[in-house]
């Protein structure tokens, strides 16, 4: 087994999230996420995977009924107590369904973060950023002749890569992905998986996935969640070959989930 980097970049401490008082969708989760690696979060539907990563970039604040307690630190900064805009720039997110902005061109979609925040850039800076972001998701050659076309004209897989480029353009420290391939066909899925393995040099990735083989293929570390609890968190190879918890083993062998 190769030696993996063990510098924590993100640490969760006793994180609890509840949609209704007293019922925890994420219950007392503590874990360290390591820099430059891909960490997958697995578990059956409703186990709190998405809820967990949406807590990290404070997406839950859109819905006033949701309560969060505990502690989240990214690069030593307490994410629950700084400006949410700043948190979301440090922790980019890619959603389950591709959601490029339908009124913007491909070019503007990549720069959307800067435009919406109101950061001024020179023409040259913009061009360079668009090119490098699209290149890093392997979309540049496919779209370079039609950058002014609407983002919504692309295929589903291309749209999702555009969304990844949009998140990467802001140079986040960590990329949170909520089942990013579940709405895509196998070819597009494969392309994105290869992309993520390349991208981990630039950005730490936490990916929620329903697909166990996907977790096995691309992730370095895996979490298994069940009923809001973090049951097991270990090297992916260990998790899949020699899980220490009976529930993990049963899930991985298809006994439930």
């Amino acid at each position: 087994m190769e030696n993996l980097n063990k510098t924590p970049i993100l640490s969760l401490k006793k994180l609890c999230v509840s949609y209704t008082p007293g019922k925890f969708a994420v219950n007392n989760v503590s874990a360290d996420i390591y820099e430059g690696l891909i960490t997958s979060v697995m578990g059956p539907s409703g186990c709190g995977k998405s809820t967990l990563i949406r807590a990290i970039n404070r997406m839950h604040e859109l819905y006033p009924d949701i309560r969060i307690s505990g502690n989240i630190e990214l690069k030593g900064r307490d994410l629950l107590h700084i400006n949410p805009s700043e948190v979301r720039r440090m922790a980019g997110m890619v959603f389950q369904r591709p959601n490029p902005f339908p009124t913007m061109s491909i070019y503007d979609n990549v720069l959307a973060g800067y435009k919406l925040i109101g950061i001024k850039q020179s023409r040259h800076e913009k061009d360079e950023l668009v090119e490098s972001s699209l290149k890093s998701v392997g979309l540049w050659d496919e779209v370079k002749d039609g950058l002014s076309k609407r983002g919504s004209f692309l295929s589903g897989g291309q749209q999702q890569r555009l969304c990844i480029a949009r998140a990467l353009a802001l140079k986040p420290d960590i990329l949170l992905m909520d089942e990013p391939t579940s709405a895509l066909d196998p070819i597009a899925t494969n392309l994105i998986e290869e992309l993520l393995v390349k991208l981990k040099k630039e950005v730490t990735i936490v990916i929620v996935t329903h697909n166990m083989t996907q977790a096995a293929r691309i992730s370095d570390y895996s979490m298994f969640m069940y009923l809001g609890e973090l049951v097991e968190y270990d090297r992916t190879e260990i998790m899949f070959t020699n899980p220490s918890d009976k529930r993990t083993e049963e899930y991985l062998t298809g006994k439930f989930g």
Partner: peptide, 14 residues
């Protein structure tokens, strides 16, 4: 769709 608003906010925009 709610995803549109989430996409905007997830980029850290006000």
């Amino acid at each position: 769709p709610a995803s549109l608003k989430e996409a905007g906010l997830a980029l850290g925009s006000p």
